[in-house]
Design a protein around this nucleic acid. Sequence first.
RNA 1: GGGCGAAUAGCUCAGUUGGUUCAGAGCACUUGGUUUACACCCAAGGGGUCGGGGGUUCGAAUCCCUCUUCGCCCA
Length: 879
Amino acid sequence: MKISPKYNASEIESKWYDYWMKNNYFHSEVDEREPYTIVIPPPNVTGVLHMGHMLNNTIQDVLIRRARLLGKNACWVPGTDHASIATEAKVVAKLKEEGINKNDLTREEFLNHAFEWKDKYGGIILEQLKKLGASCDWERTKFTMDDDMSEAVIKVFVDLYNKGLIYRGFRMVNWDPEAKTTLSDEEVIYEERQGNLYYLQYDIVGSDEKVTIATTRPETILGDSAICINPEDERFTHLKGKKAIVPLCNREIPIIEDSYVDVEFGTGCLKVTPAHDENDKVLGDKHNLEVIDIFNEDASLNSFGLHYEGKDRFVVRKEIAKELEEKGYLVKVEQHTNKVGTSERTKAVIEPRLSDQWFLKMEDLAKPAIEGVLGEDRDVKLYPRKFENTYRHWMENIRDWNISRQLWWGQQIPAFYYGDGKEDFVVAETKEKALELAKEKTSNANLQASDLRQDADVLDTWFSSWLWPMSVFDGIRNPENEEINYYYPTNDLVTGPDILFFWVARMIISGYEYKDTRPFENVYLTGLVRDKQRRKMSKSLGNSPDALKLIEEYGADGVRVGLLLSSAAGNDLLFDEALCQQGKGLGNKVWSAFYLTSLWEVSGEIEQPEHSKIAIEWYKTKLQKTLAEIEDHYSKYRLSDVIMSIYKLINDDFCGWLLEAVKPAYQQPIDKKTYDEVIAIFEDNLKVLHPFMPFITEEIWQLISERTAEEALIIAKYPEINEIKDSSIIEEFDFATSIISGIRTIRKEKNIAFKDAIELYVVNNENYTKSFDSVIKKLVNASEVNYVQEKVDGASFRVKSNEYFVPISADSINVEEEIKKITEELNYTEGFLKSVQKKLSNERFVNNAPEQVVATEKKKEADALAKIETLKASLASLG
RNA sequence: GGGCGAAUAGCUCAGUUGGUUCAGAGCACUUGGUUUACACCCAAGGGGUCGGGGGUUCGAAUCCCUCUUCGCCCA
């Protein structure tokens, strides 16, 4: 068959993806083989592929494809996450564009819009993953709000409630006034903001005294319920037991004492606003203070805001400062930088707010998950290990998880209220069951379903994704089903360290709680993808390349290799398109090597030449050695080292040395034995490379010979890894490459064209094998390798204590230069010898160092001495 | 403010229990070359006081102390 000298990625990639799909290679079913399972970190259902996804999913695909080649039953479960806040925000924004206000819709109407949106945009990202070559079992695609997935979530909620682990609490939460919902601590991003520190004067009841406090939020004075001083602070002793008057609203508040107050900060005197600050809430509880909430849910002021009622907090901040100034309460304003919490999704400034929320008690649940990761047997292993410390710190200081969100898009909390009392509710999986429970609890048999009102809140998105590895196999609803028993626990999880706590830790927790086992054995934490200037890739900076365009330009294979070449686990990846170029370059190299073999005319008539025989023998050993190295890298999840080893194997060893050694002369046929062996080697190379470059390897595999569907590369058998009994051939070959390099250098220095054959003379002091002479002759175009006892006139070089001579015409020999070169080499070697001998003459070294270390030093000494002797002999003959 | 981690070639990083895998890789750079697979190529080469200082040791990139700089997480 005629092979194109150029490789066309985009055409070939879609061809093979279709072929793989058609033959159902990605699909997995329970069978007797060993399972290998990965669940995808479900991307947001409305998301589009970005560089982080590319990295992440390439790694997963490499692991899955490798497992498939190793004969395991590989199952990669794909899916998407409903991403409550992010998606709801997008739907609200879209409705707004259409002139529809969310608040004018019923819950059902809104959800209809949301599902419409999801059906339209959801899953785009999964289609994009296919372009990357992701070999997911698409028949298993899941969505965190599928009916069965939601059922599992509700079941778990009810179960945890019944275990007493879920409770309702009036707590200070992070309130996003824009999305009008609670955020978990992890969804709050703290930013440094330039603000003001306002110094305000409060009058003291029954005296002319005043007290000055400093605050960054003057609008909250309307919610003040105390002034607090440090009892040790002598400046304020005279205020003890007195009362102050809040400016503008003229409320009397107590002056309390607490050592919490930092005497250094501001005036050393603090206003206490329990409704609007976490620390103040603690103080308020301790001192039994009134709680005055001055905000509406959109952070505009309510009736406690007096004449500011209805105005936004930031507007009020400016206006109230002005009013306070006019009325003489404002002493001064200082510039002040403080950290402000903002919403990860809406960017709105977070308002600490007291409200009724649902919480999950974490302390006991976390214990097995701490032991699982940090215990001695490392039941769950984190790669790289440095994340274990971070994990420990978080898990040991874990706080209860606020699982309710004031949204509609998500699983509605299955709590049903039958009255107005705080405890007038029941928790059940369905309304029917709830009614039964409510009847029991109230002893009111006449209670109707219509009397029950379900909690309006939904559950935090992570409350569904923390069950992901179990729920995708229906392991919550049917805990003993065949699939969960087979595929769970899964093997590897690949994700970013930014969701170590959001997601990974919680899956570990739920795994131990519901299956009493780890959810996965290994967690590979990738780094973040950054640009060359180390900036995070983001839409707003516009520094994120279009993933699909990259694939178009470099091919999926090229992008995959480019991404992995520089991404050691846990290290940030500084993305540079040049890396994709390198990836594409490897593809071209492989293709061109294949093209070369396709040009060969094979003859059964000729014998295998010596140089081919020995080179193939060497490569086979080298391949085994590399396979072992690769295995070691895989076991440590060092995928960038794996691909680098493969890169060197194919680029240098296979193309650079082996093919050059066996390549027949122009228009000469190749012997059949060599051809067959090279093709077999090529096939092994393709298998090793397949997980990284699935498309081009399959293409070549199928072109090498006609294959049935059962013989496709994607399901081929990975090369066997055998222990190398004798690796001396590798060292001998390395010696040969040094000789070859030496001759190439001479050719370059003396301007000898490659087509002009040279003669080579050797003084074989090392007693080095002659096995590779045929290879050397071929690769340097030497007509003869002559073994001699004495120096020969011409250019020379040395490998260890062996001397090599290439006779050249007398006028191109520069004796002075030769002398200089050899003298330099001699000086270096003598210096080296000196340092070795110094060591060896140190009695303490000889007595204390291990025998082997001393032995190697002695060997160094002997080698150096031998070399010095040859160098001196050379000098003598020259001079 | 608390915790964790990092600093090695121009860049990105390896370097495991102190000693032949100890100063390495890839890229970039310089020089030369079409040699009938590949210029998306090949060959040869230059380049580092292992962040600074101190200590332990026969021996330190590696262990300890200290300083400097940077990153991440949490409050």
